[in-house]
Computed example of a mutant assay.
Amino acid sequence: MPAKDLYHDIVRRSLEKDGWIITDDPLKLKIGLRELFVDLGAKQLLAAQKEEYKIAVEIKSFIGLSPVADLENALGQFTLYSDILEELDPDRVLYLAVRQEIFDGIFEEAIGKILLKKGRLRLLVFHAKKEEIIQWIP
């Protein structure tokens, strides 16, 4: 089992404050002989449609020496998990959770804007101190 990300508990509490029910901590993906672990699985009841909306959340701290290297690793992991979830649990949508400061510092720059424009990532942006979700970027 992998170690929890630095902001794991903060993101979990932020999701719960936002009305999400944590279903998996971590969410295990078994594919062939391999097991992979997405940080969180959650669901929310959509009252109007009486349906559940399921998500998976991979949390990234971006605390390495190079934000670009952290982005490359996060993008690779996001792509891998997205493709596997599409096969194993196609109703679940994957999000990458990043702090507001990371969003402002990377995803508001040209490199991040390109990724978002191309639809390479779905982001959950959170405020670490307030323990709340700031925005969802599909």
Rank of each mutant, 00 (worst) to 15 (best):
K17W: 02
K17H: 05
D18W: 03
W20C: 04
I21T: 04
I22D: 02
T23W: 01
D25E: 06
P26H: 00
L27N: 02
K30G: 00
E35I: 04
E35V: 04
F37G: 00
V38T: 01
V38I: 13
D39F: 02
A42D: 01
A48M: 05
E51I: 10
E52H: 08
I55R: 08
I63P: 05
G64W: 03
S66R: 12
S66E: 08
P67A: 08
V68M: 07
D70E: 11
L71K: 01
A74D: 07
G76T: 10
G76Q: 12
F78P: 13
L80F: 13
L80A: 14
Y81S: 06
S82L: 09
D83Q: 15
D89T: 14
P90F: 15
P90I: 09
D91Q: 15
L94G: 08
Y95Q: 09
A97D: 11
A97M: 09
Q100E: 14
D104N: 15
D104V: 10
F107Y: 08
K113M: 14
K113R: 14
K113I: 10
I114Y: 13
I114S: 10
L115E: 06
L116R: 07
K118V: 12
G119P: 06
L121C: 11
L121S: 12
R122C: 05
L123C: 13
L124V: 07
L124C: 07
H127K: 11
H127N: 14
K130A: 13
E131Q: 13
Q135M: 14
Q135V: 11
